[in-house]
Simulated scan of single mutants.
Amino acid sequence: MKKVLIVRASAIGDIVFASPFAEAIKKTYPDAYISWLMEKGNEVLMADSPYVDECIVMPVSEWKSLWKNGKKLEAIKKIRAFGAELKARHFDVAIDLQGLLKSGIFAWMSSAPVRIGLGSREGSQWLMNKVISRAGESHRISSEYLYLAEQLKLDHNHFTPSLSLNSQSEKLALEKLAAHGLHPGKYVVFAAFTTRPQKHWFADAWQNMAPMVKEKTGLIPILLGGPADKVAAEEIHSGAQDIINLVGQTRLAEAVAIVAHAGALIGVDTGLTHMGIAFDIPTVALFGSTCPYTNTTRDNAKVIWLGLPCSPCRRKPTCNDRFDCLREITPENVMTTLESALKSES
């Protein structure tokens, strides 16, 4: 492995899970040049990693915009040109960690003589030389990527998510915190938002959680999220003035830095929550409709999952939107778990 292309373009949480894979390659092949292909915006997650030499940005949103606006020929030309750029880099190995047709196409377009797919489907398996199934200990964080590392005989002795900070983004993040009277280690991040309602804890639960955390730990709760989460954030904030609402006010790289400097994190199954584990801060992760990792590999990271018969339902809830798997997780339960995580930290 002299020149390696890793393809894991999205989503944020999955990139966090996959982060130790680059380290495993680098430890096994110290002279390898590792490039990571990801969608625009996500590159901040791995751009400062000591194990990734280069992030290649894939402007998917630009291509989609051209296609939707009737400029299909131009979109196709740009995609082909991007593929030609990949081919010109002369990769020895392309590893598709995403396993979808769209990711497999770019691994194939790289013309790497060895193309390895993780659980490849949707036809992408026909674009690979070798497909390795998604397996491993399902309740361990990053298990499928660890299994792939084992199958490829990579050094996997330390295989836990880890991220590095961009110094400029870290500076901006600390300035934003200071503007709200917040200091490193003195706040708790509430990572309340994700892509599907069946993964969300309830607004009233967060509202009840805020004063409880502040009183028992002295940590100031802050809400983090993207622009699409503003309405939901306002609903939570309207009933809990103890919370500082930073939703939509930070770029991804700044949010990463805010998580890294937090005293603790409470969150649902979303990228920001998994970052808490990557940065080794006390973390409580709430799972319901999705399959949990109960083995976080860190003593200060705890998972709450009730294991109801209907859970995980993934994208097909059967509870008529009651989401009992999360409703039955109480703020008191979360507080007890957080105190345990904080105790493990000390």
Rank of each mutant, 00 (worst) to 15 (best):
G276H: 04
C310Q: 03
M1R: 04
E215M: 07
Q151F: 09
G181L: 08
T194I: 14
K316P: 00
D280E: 13
K316Y: 14
S164Y: 14
L66P: 11
N208V: 00
V334Q: 04
E74C: 06
M209E: 00
L148P: 03
I277F: 02
C291G: 13
I244R: 06
T296Q: 04
G225D: 02
D204L: 11
S143I: 01
S49R: 10
R134M: 12
Y147D: 08
T336P: 02
K40M: 04
R298P: 08
M1N: 06
C55A: 04
H156Y: 12
N320F: 09
P312D: 01
V131A: 08
T337Q: 00
A24D: 05
K72G: 02
E23C: 04
A112C: 04
L265N: 12
A11T: 08
L127R: 09
Q207F: 14
W67R: 15
I277E: 06
G218T: 05
K77G: 03
S138W: 15
K2R: 11
M109H: 04
E54A: 07
K230N: 09
F91G: 02
T294Q: 10
I266F: 10
I244Y: 04
F17L: 10
L154W: 07
G70M: 05
D229A: 06
R121G: 08
T273F: 05
I141C: 05
L5K: 07
W305K: 07
A301M: 00
M1Q: 06
K316M: 11
I25E: 07
T336V: 11
Y51N: 07
A192W: 05
L45G: 08
T290P: 15
M58C: 05
G248Y: 03
Q98K: 09
H200V: 02
K64M: 06
